[in-house]
Amino acid sequence: MIIYNYVFIGMLLLGAIGFAMAPVIVMGILGPKKRSKSKSEIYECGLLTTGETWVRFRIQYYIYAIMFLVFDIETVFLYPWAAAYESLGLFALVEMVIFLLILAVGLVYAWAKGVLKWV
């Protein structure tokens, strides 16, 4: 049953979480605990932090995230096509070329618009 494949993966997931948490817990027990105000300050090359944690972000990050989202979904469509390639005729190849052309226009648009440049 497919589910048993994933039961093993589920056990591995729990085991990995345990494997990751164990040393941190052990460190909490073994490690020395000398709390001091200065030690728990945020490290900024020694200076005290000013202002809250927000930096003037560029829109680039958002644009890269959208580009990734759109091309991620493009690959989600490409995977089943590739898996079923031999039972699909030449016609499917033409359709897939059209699909990729439509999305390539998106990439060319972003490129020519200059949003991909990291100013």
Binding site: Y62, I66, L69, V70, I73, V76
Partner: peptide, 14 residues
């Protein structure tokens, strides 16, 4: 539906 939801989030955040 997943592609539509993703497109909606992209436009919504925009």
């Amino acid at each position: 539906v997943i592609t539509i939801a993703a497109a909606e989030v992209a436009v919504g955040i925009g």
